[in-house]
Simulated scan of single mutants.
Amino acid sequence: MRKNESTALIEVNAPDRHFVTSLQKGMDVLTCFGRQHSRLTLSEVARLTGMSPASARRSLLTLHQLGYLDSDGKRFWMLPRALLVAHAYLSSRPMPSLAQPLLDALSERTRESASLGQLLDNDAIIVARSTARRSLSTGLGIGSRLPAYCSALGRALLAGLPPAEALARVRGMKRVALTPQTVHSVPRVMELLERCRAEGFATNDGELEIGVRSMAVPVRDQQGQVVAAMSIAVRVERMNMSELREAFLPMLHRARDTLAARLFPV
Rank of each mutant, 00 (worst) to 15 (best):
M173G: 12
R195Y: 04
G139E: 11
N122A: 09
V170I: 14
V236W: 10
L83K: 11
K25F: 09
D205C: 06
V219Y: 04
R254E: 15
W77G: 04
A152C: 09
P15E: 06
R39N: 02
R134M: 11
S71H: 03
L42T: 11
T41S: 15
D121Q: 12
P180C: 05
C196P: 03
G50H: 13
N122Q: 04
S22L: 12
A159D: 04
M173N: 06
G50F: 12
V266E: 14
R254H: 15
L192Q: 14
A46S: 15
D257E: 14
A261Y: 05
D28K: 15
D72I: 04
L161M: 11
P94N: 01
M1N: 02
I232K: 11
L103A: 06
A255N: 11
L136S: 11
M241E: 15
S137Q: 03
L140S: 12
L42P: 05
S113W: 03
L193A: 09
R57E: 13
R129A: 15
V217G: 11
T138P: 00
L208E: 11
L23S: 07
A114P: 05
L252M: 13
F19H: 09
H87Q: 15
A148Y: 05
S52N: 01
P250Y: 10
V45P: 06
A99W: 01
V234I: 15
G50A: 09
A260P: 03
L244E: 07
V186T: 12
E44W: 01
W77Y: 05
H37G: 02
R169T: 09
S113N: 12
H64M: 08
R47K: 08
R145P: 05
A233K: 10
R93C: 03
I126K: 03
